[in-house]
Simulated assay, not measured.
Amino acid sequence: MRLNRFLAAAGVGSRRHCDGLIAAGRVTVNGKICTNFSAQPGAQDHVKVDGKLVRTAPALTIMLHKPAGFVSTRKDPHARDTVFDLIPQKYHRLFNIGRLDAQTEGLLLLTNDGELAQRLTHPRHKIDKEYAVTLDRPWDPALAPKLLRGIFLDGQRAKIEKIHSVSPTRLLVVLRQGINRQIHRMFEVVGYRVKHLLRLRIGNLRLADLPRGHWRVLTARDLSRLGASR
């Protein structure tokens, strides 16, 4: 197993994050800095990140119904509440797969499985994320083609895959990208303000009736619903 996959499997982070740690010289194997991405540590090797021994652990993923007002990070410099305040201390080694803005609610996954995180966040896997969007005024369906074709944000084309009207001011929107504040910014371009945003689904895994602020461990069946096949 290559070094970045070893680190990801141990819950250090996604493979992309682990690549950055390796490149920065923060990873040692048997006491020596290792910047060789092809290195394949074995069971007897001592792998450390920033001097801390990395131990592999069974893969674990939980789903959380994130409330508004909580930031999707482990520690916040402004001392705001974080999603880790909502889960037991024993799960604080997990990391979140993607982020939800502080005021966005809904389905958030936390895991120690870097491979799963990679499959769910890399655009080539085309994993749907569905949101319930509440706008500040009635939606004009004539604007939908512009959002479906895409708008340039941060130097790339931001697209909405599907838009479905539920009521004059409520829409269901599907994304396959993860650009910062993408839904808010895209609707601002066409003259709307998003008043409330709730993530309902990732792949075929739905938030369903999980209460706000509650969490549960995903089962094998849940993981299969994510659509992130190996």
Score class of each variant (00 low, 15 high):
126 K>G: 06
47 V>N: 01
203 G>S: 08
36 N>D: 12
12 V>S: 00
183 I>T: 04
195 K>Y: 01
71 V>I: 14
146 K>R: 15
119 R>M: 13
60 L>E: 05
228 A>V: 03
84 F>V: 04
3 L>T: 03
71 V>Y: 02
199 R>A: 01
26 R>T: 02
126 K>C: 09
174 V>T: 15
47 V>A: 01
45 D>N: 11
199 R>Q: 06
184 H>M: 13
158 A>I: 14
75 K>W: 08
38 S>D: 07
197 L>M: 05
126 K>S: 12
32 K>A: 12
88 P>Y: 15
105 E>D: 04
142 A>L: 07
189 V>K: 14
94 L>W: 00
165 S>Q: 15
223 L>A: 02
135 L>P: 00
138 P>Q: 15
112 N>G: 11
187 F>A: 04
56 T>S: 06
185 R>M: 07
63 M>Y: 04
75 K>D: 14
13 G>V: 13
115 E>N: 06
191 G>W: 03
62 I>Y: 02
92 H>M: 09
163 I>E: 00
67 P>I: 13
168 P>V: 10
28 T>P: 02
204 N>R: 14
53 L>D: 10
106 G>I: 11
71 V>M: 07
150 G>C: 13
6 F>N: 01
1 M>V: 07
175 L>E: 00
151 I>S: 01
97 I>C: 03
80 R>L: 14
205 L>F: 05
60 L>M: 09
166 V>P: 00
7 L>D: 01
169 T>G: 11
67 P>N: 12
148 L>G: 11
83 V>W: 03
34 C>Y: 01
85 D>I: 11
82 T>D: 05
143 L>R: 08
77 P>D: 08
198 L>F: 06
107 L>I: 05
176 R>M: 13
193 R>M: 07
171 L>T: 00
227 G>F: 04
64 L>N: 01
127 I>L: 04
90 K>H: 10
105 E>L: 02
153 L>V: 05
42 G>E: 09
50 D>E: 12
180 N>A: 08
191 G>I: 02
220 A>T: 07
173 V>E: 01
201 R>I: 10
104 T>V: 03
183 I>G: 02
183 I>R: 04
63 M>Q: 10
120 L>H: 00
67 P>W: 15
33 I>Q: 10
10 A>H: 04
147 L>D: 00
215 W>V: 15
32 K>C: 06
21 L>A: 02
94 L>V: 06
130 E>S: 06
19 D>Q: 10
45 D>P: 01
158 A>Y: 12
36 N>R: 12
227 G>V: 04
72 S>F: 09
206 R>H: 10
189 V>I: 08
186 M>A: 06
219 T>S: 15
213 G>V: 12
1 M>F: 12
34 C>H: 09
96 N>L: 08
11 G>C: 10
77 P>C: 08
53 L>W: 03
99 R>Q: 06
140 D>Y: 11
144 A>S: 13
113 D>G: 12
40 Q>L: 04
107 L>P: 00
216 R>H: 08
14 S>E: 05
89 Q>F: 13
159 K>F: 04
118 Q>C: 15
86 L>C: 14
150 G>T: 13
57 A>T: 11
170 R>D: 07
136 D>M: 12
1 M>Y: 05
94 L>Y: 03
123 P>M: 06
141 P>F: 14
96 N>D: 05
88 P>I: 15
213 G>R: 05
215 W>I: 06
181 R>Y: 08
159 K>L: 14
97 I>G: 00
188 E>G: 05
45 D>T: 03
209 D>T: 13
